[in-house]
């Protein structure tokens, strides 16, 4: 198959694990750490369970930690428990993510539990990209769980992207937002073939003036199916918003379940959910600018998931 724009972008997306960047990094391959490097402000150690403990010193600014996982062995069931502590007033990016290459007919599976504490006043961007490839019929399975606590006045953004190649995924995100803290969860998902993807997000806005936002965009092609559940629990005077927007194609199915739970009369919670196919007018517009129908579809999907 020839690489289309989407494919190329994807390769670009996971290039973080193609070369070794400077700064703090831990590469885990087939269940074992193959490279580990701390930086003066970011300490990476092994915890009791064998997973990582990443400690970011208070006040650390503009640093990035890479913690990619790659799986190239078939039949592997990799389970890991990692902890991240972002110190007070730090401003950092964590790039996680998992790439599976499986050319065989056996299953490859990765199950990761990430626990993140964003301390007072800190600013975190957490990016997690998932990708699978390989010629065999072997299933590429990912079960990531992220638990995050956003302390007073802190800001966190979780961005998860899964564009291709993962056959079966259940992603669980659980968050606790304290006073005047902000959390944004951004999801980008594309499923095709017979893939199954489920995302379960639950955000508890506990502190006064806290704010939680979930923005999900997904595309389901072929016979794939997606389930999206997003619950916002407002336990104080707070703001919460869920937005899920999906493009459905072919014989795919999508189920979107936004849930708002207000436990305080000052909680303001809203949601928008939309599922629909590509608008015919959009295709016609792009074709009238000289694109073929396939190119028009690719352009629309690519920009929608950007």
């Amino acid at each position: 198959m020839k690489l289309n724009k989407l494919d190329k972008n994807l390769l670009n997306t996971i290039s973080d694990i193609d070369h070794i960047p400077a700064g703090a990094i831990n590469i885990r391959k087939d269940g074992k750490p193959v490279l580990r490097q701390s930086s003066p402000n970011i300490l990476i150690t092994t915890g009791e369970t064998g997973g990582l403990i990443v400690e970011i010193k208070p006040g650390t600014k503009n640093e990035t930690v890479h913690v990619p996982v790659i799986i190239t062995k078939t039949g592997l069931n990799d389970v890991v428990y990692n902890q991240f502590i972002v110190g007070e007033n730090a401003d950092v990016t964590i790039v996680a993510g998992c790439g599976i290459h499986n050319d065989s007919h056996g299953k490859s599976r990765h199950e990761g539990l990430h626990e993140i504490i964003v301390k007072e006043g800190a600013h975190l961007r957490y990016v997690e990209k998932h990708y699978g490839e390989g010629s065999g019929t072997g299933q590429k399975v990912l079960y990531p769980t992220t638990k995050i606590i956003v302390e007073k006045n802190a800001y966190a953004e979780i961005e998860s992207v899964q564009i291709k190649g993962v056959d079966d995924t259940v992603r669980i995100t659980e968050a606790y937002i304290h006073e005047k803290a902000i959390l944004k969860v951004i999801e980008r998902l594309l499923t095709h073939g017979n893939q199954y993807a489920e995302s379960d997000i639950k955000i508890f806005i506990e502190g006064k003036g806290g704010s939680g936002q979930i923005l999900s965009r997904s595309v389901a092609k072929g016979n794939s199916s997606q389930i999206f559940r997003a619950a916002l629990v407002g336990q104080n005077e707070c703001l919460g918003h869920v937005e899920c927007d999906s493009i459905i194609m072919d014989k795919a199915t999508i189920k979107a379940v936004p849930e708002l739970i207000a436990e305080d009369s000052e909680a303001v919670l809203t949601h928008e959910a939309a599922i629909g196919k590509i608008a015919g007018e959009q295709l016609i517009k792009l074709m009238s600018l000289g694109l073929t129908e396939d190119e028009a579809v690719d352009t629309i999907l690519e920009s929608f998931l950007k």
Partner: peptide, 29 residues
């Protein structure tokens, strides 16, 4: 597409919107 490439162009009465595409992207297309 073929007519577009033969040099026919049409500015819609009601142009459609595109999520994620910038003005610049569209002009470049």
């Amino acid at each position: 597409t073929q007519r577009a490439n033969l040099g026919i162009a049409y500015a819609f009465q009601q142009p459609p919107r595109f999520k994620g595409l910038t003005v610049q992207d569209l002009v470049k297309i």
